[in-house]
Amino acid sequence: MSKPNKALSYLGLAMRAGKLAFGEEGVLKAIRSGQARLVVMSEDASDNTRKKFLDKCQHYNVALSENFSRYELGAAIGKEARVLVAVLDSGLAQLIKPCLVKPPEVEPIE
Rank of each mutant, 00 (worst) to 15 (best):
S2G: 03
S2F: 03
K3T: 03
K3A: 12
P4V: 00
P4W: 04
N5R: 05
K6L: 14
A7M: 04
L8T: 02
Y10N: 08
L11Y: 02
G12Y: 07
G12A: 02
G12I: 09
G12P: 12
G12M: 07
G12F: 07
L13Q: 11
A14T: 05
M15T: 00
M15H: 01
R16F: 14
R16L: 13
G18W: 08
K19F: 00
L20G: 06
F22Y: 12
F22T: 01
E24A: 14
E25Q: 10
G26D: 11
V27K: 02
K29G: 04
A30I: 12
I31N: 08
R32N: 05
S33N: 11
G34L: 06
A36R: 03
R37S: 13
L38C: 15
L38E: 03
L38H: 09
L38N: 07
V39S: 12
V40I: 15
V40A: 13
M41I: 05
S42F: 09
E43I: 00
D44P: 00
D44C: 04
D44Y: 01
D44V: 01
N48Y: 04
N48C: 09
T49P: 08
R50T: 13
K51P: 06
L54M: 14
L54S: 12
L54E: 15
K56F: 13
K56Y: 12
C57G: 12
C57P: 14
Q58F: 09
Q58A: 11
Q58N: 15
N61D: 12
N61G: 10
V62E: 03
A63W: 01
A63R: 02
L64T: 08
S65W: 05
E66G: 09
N67V: 10
N67G: 01
F68T: 02
E72L: 15
G74D: 06
G74T: 07
A75P: 02
I77R: 03
G78V: 04
G78M: 10
K79E: 15
K79V: 06
E80Q: 04
A81W: 00
R82C: 02
V83S: 10
L84Y: 03
A86G: 02
A86V: 01
V87Q: 04
L88C: 13
D89A: 09
D89F: 08
L92G: 00
K97A: 13
C99Y: 01
C99E: 15
P103A: 12
P104G: 14
P104R: 04
V106D: 04
V106P: 00
E107H: 08
I109F: 08
E110C: 08
E110F: 12
